[in-house]
């Protein structure tokens, strides 16, 4: 399958790469992604809401808000994609259950995979439909498929697609890794019908979200590479 989109914007955010220019330099350098679970600045999210979010969720919401402001476009369909989602909250809640059999209401409310989608909608006031998606190593292909299906079926004119991850371990438990980990990050794209960005699923099958971003920032758009 060949994915074909009009690319209206691409933006990444991580603790070590807080600016667009940082991502461009990193992409061009060929260096490994600078993994970090440090702080994420989120000036566009009200502090009362921001403090309830895990750092990767915060990055995901911030990236989409930035993208739509930069492109002056409001997506009518939003996809948030993550392998681990709110796994860290599950660990925290399991610990609490083992401790005294209770769960914090705030922790529980924010433990759903669609937490970033919910906060994006609250902050932006965009009431468009959203979906939160998960998969394994093939998450890039699956999320592009979901976005592509919405656009090709005519249901969406502009899709905001955001990949994000939260830290996968905390003090309670070291979670085994079975692939590369990038710590906290979000990588977002604004997509429309078009052909300014084309890529084969045979290529995205071997990519994680960070590699997809590097591919796009280094001029991979237009290169189908079937």
């Amino acid at each position: 399958m060949i994915f074909s989109f009009g690319m209206e914007g691409a933006l990444g955010l991580s603790p070590e790469l807080p600016e667009r220019s940082d991502w461009e330099k990193w992409a061009a350098s060929g260096r490994p992604f600078p993994e970090s679970d440090g702080r994420i600045s989120s000036p566009d999210i009200p502090m009362m809401l921001s403090r309830r979010l895990l750092p990767g969720d915060r990055a995901a919401v911030e990236v989409l808000l930035h993208l739509q402001k930069d492109a002056d476009l409001v997506p009518d369909f939003v996809v948030f994609a993550s392998r681990h989602g709110e796994l860290l909250r599950s660990v925290t809640m399991l610990s609490s259950l083992a401790d005294d059999g209770t769960v914090s209401p705030t922790e529980f409310s924010n433990s759903v995979q669609n937490t970033p989608a919910a906060y994006y909608s609250m902050v932006s006031g965009n009431h468009a439909e959203s979906v939160s998606l998960s998969s394994g190593d093939d998450i890039v292909t699956m999320a592009l498929t979901e976005a592509s299906a919405a656009i090709m079926s005519g249901d969406a004119k502009c899709c905001g697609l955001v990949f994000y991850e939260n830290p996968v371990s905390n003090a309670i438990m070291e979670i085994p890794r079975d692939g590369p980990s990038y710590g906290t990050f979000a990588a977002g794209f604004l997509l429309r019908k078009g052909s300014s960005f084309r890529i084969a699923s045979s290529l995205t099958d071997t990519m994680d979200p960070v590699q997809l971003m590097r591919y796009i920032l280094t001029g991979g758009d237009g290169d189908v590479a079937a």
Binding site: H84, L87, S95, S96, Q113, S135, I172
Partner: peptide, 20 residues
Amino acid sequence: SASPRQLCYDARLSRIGDLS
């Protein structure tokens, strides 16, 4: 688990994406 503060299980069991 040794204590509630040190959980011991494979968290991949509860990773939603692995269901696919």
